[in-house]
Design a protein around this nucleic acid. Structure first.
Length: 381
RNA sequence: GUGGAAUUAGCUCAGUUGGUUAGAGCAUCAGAUUGUGGCUCUGAGGGCCAAGGGUUCAAAUCCCUUAUUCCACC
């Protein structure tokens, strides 16, 4: 069983600060985990990731890594940590989301999912046991089980069947996990993923089924897939109480900075999202003063840093005008600097949230910063 | 000098036998992006169709003149 120490509970809200122990290091929660789908956080090298951004754990994706480079290469390399030169924790998503997002290629079966590779069209089959096997080859510290992520909107009957399937698979995931061993000498842990779309009774059923199996942690999946944000908060308010308090809670794929803070307030400990990196590549910059679209014409002669309150590599060394120029010229450095900055912002956001939970003024701080950081900067002061 | 071709958005070009408010790509400008199928998607602005004159109910389209550019031949 993974060790998770809650070092401080918030007084009025469910937010908490904790320490999550893995063989690759201790993670301070709440935490944001940069997404490195194919064994690389896009446009960011591992040195920056560790030393500047101060990422404590990153994500890999089972579906993508299985297709390329494949488990034989990962095994020969000694696991993903060595392969990519990252010695801090790694969490792998199972490919359950790809089952949903690549829906045209999939065929759901009771025992797993058939799909066609988006790379070469070849046919493959994922079962819960197969996914665990692949994650053993990858060597991720925290493994996600195979699940089905429902789209939104999703009618009740489909969501119900989907929860039943995900619960059935959870049993098989857990069995496979217990029957197999880590390959590289460090411990691996398995989470359960709660589904149920926007239906509270289905969410409850999903949570009860999974808690019975006693996973190391619990993920909340199937949110931020298009439902109104208020709906997401409503489900979070409801579902967190069904997850044992001493287990880490992971809200998959979320989200915008304000979504993360609202979810922390509701008791979530872990987050991942492509937003800081994908948006960085599209010139969308998160700052403590609000959102900047750095390609905008008005930054062409703005020689201030992206964010005057930031000490990341990009802000310490380069100006808005230069970043805008790089984006307009489609220079590769644009993607690197913007990604470093946005990830640094997300990690700072989590770090500050943690600090204010410990200091006891999280809700006040949260309400104050959300107003500022979620707004687009439209007029320069 | 002679003959031919061309001239349409900032750039490169479409534009059917003349027929409503002349299109595209790129560029520009502005949005979007939530367990990532690496440079994506959506939208907007921008043209007295080289200039002038004719023919016609109607001209980017046909005719004439001029200008500019390119090609071929003396």
């Amino acid at each position: 069983m993974i060790r998770f120490d809650i070092i401080k509970n918030s007084n009025n809200v469910k937010a908490r600060a904790g320490l999550l122990y893995t063989d690759h290091g201790v993670i301070e929660t709440p935490i944001f985990m940069p997404v490195g789908t194919q064994g690389s956080v896009k446009a960011v090298n591992q040195t920056f990731l560790a030393e500047d951004i101060k990422a404590q754990i990153i994500l890999g994706n089972t579906y993508h890594l299985y297709l390329r480079p494949g488990t034989d290469i990962l095994f020969k390399a000694g696991g993903l940590h060595k392969f990519m030169n990252w010695n801090r924790p790694i969490l792998t998503d199972s490919g359950g989301y790809q089952v949903f997002s690549l829906a045209e290629l999939r065929k759901l079966r009771k025992d797993g999912v058939e799909f066609k590779s988006h790379i070469d069209g070849s046919k493959h089959f994922f079962s819960p046991a197969k996914v665990i096997e692949i994650e053993r080859f990858i060597g991720s510290d925290i493994m996600m089980p195979l699940d089905e992520c429902t789209p939104y909107p999703c009618d009740y009957d489909y969501a119900k069947k989907s929860v039943e399937l995900t619960s059935k698979w959870a049993v098989l995931n857990k069995e496979a996990f217990e029957k197999t061993q880590p390959l590289y000498g460090h411990q691996q842990y398995l989470w359960g993923i709660i589904q149920g779309s926007v239906y509270k009774d289905l969410r409850e059923k999903s949570a009860l089924d999974l808690v019975k199996l006693d996973f190391d942690g619990y993920s909340i999946g199937g949110l931020a897939v298009g439902e109104p944000t208020e709906k997401m908060y409503e489900i979070l308010d409801f579902i967190v109480d069904y997850i044992p308090e001493n287990k880490p809670r992971y809200l998959m794929g979320v989200g915008k900075p304000e979504n993360i803070l609202e979810a922390i307030e509701r008791g979530v400990d872990m987050f991942d999202c492509v937003m800081p990196t994908r948006n960085a590549r599209n010139s969308h910059i998160f700052t403590w003063n609000g959102i900047i679209s750095i390609r905008n014409n008005r930054y062409k002669d703005d020689f201030r840093p992206l964010d005057e309150n930031c000490d990341c590599y990009a802000c310490k060394n380069y100006t808005r005008a230069y970043l805008r120029h790089l984006f307009v010229a489609k220079e590769l450095l644009a993607y690197e600097l913007a990604s470093v900055h946005n990830l640094h912002f997300y990690l700072s956001l989590a770090k500050n949230a943690r600090k204010h939970i410990i200091e006891g003024d999280f809700p006040e701080w949260k309400n104050k910063v959300i107003k500022i950081i979620s707004k687009k900067i439209s007029k320069e002061e």
